[in-house]
C-alpha cells in the first residue's frame, strides 16, 4: 500500500504540474481540494483521466470522484480494489 501511495504521489505531481512539490511534502491523509493541496475542478478531471490511463479505472459517474479524491490514501484504497492494470 505504501508503494502505491508513493507511486500515486509521483503521478499526481507530474500530471498536475505541482512544481516544487515532492512525494515527501504531500500528506497522503490531507484533503486534495480546498485547504489541502488546493486542487481545482480541472485538476479533478485530470485525476479522472489518470485513473483510467494508469489503472484502467473508468468512473461512470463523475460524482464518484468526490469520495474517491478526498485524499491520496482514499484514492490509493480505491485503486487497490478496482484496478484492472
Amino acid at each position: 500500500m505504501d508503494e502505491l501511495i508513493l507511486e500515486l504521489k509521483k503521478e499526481i505531481i507530474e500530471a498536475l504540474n505541482l512544481e516544487g512539490m515532492t512525494p515527501e511534502s504531500i500528506d497522503e491523509n490531507a484533503s486534495l481540494f480546498g485547504d489541502g493541496l488546493g486542487l481545482d475542478s480541472i485538476d479533478a478531471l485530470e485525476l479522472i483521466v489518470l485513473l483510467e490511463r494508469n489503472y484502467g479505472i473508468k468512473l461512470e459517474n463523475a460524482n464518484e470522484g468526490k469520495e474517491i479524491f478526498k485524499s491520496i490514501r482514499i484514492m490509493a484504497d480505491y485503486i487497490k480494489q478496482h484496478r484492472t492494470k
Binding site: N17, I42, D43, L45, V49
Partner: peptide
C-alpha cells in the same frame, strides 16, 4: 486515447 482536460483548457 486520453484527452487531457488541463491541456484542453
Amino acid at each position: 486515447f486520453f484527452p487531457s482536460p488541463a491541456v484542453f483548457v
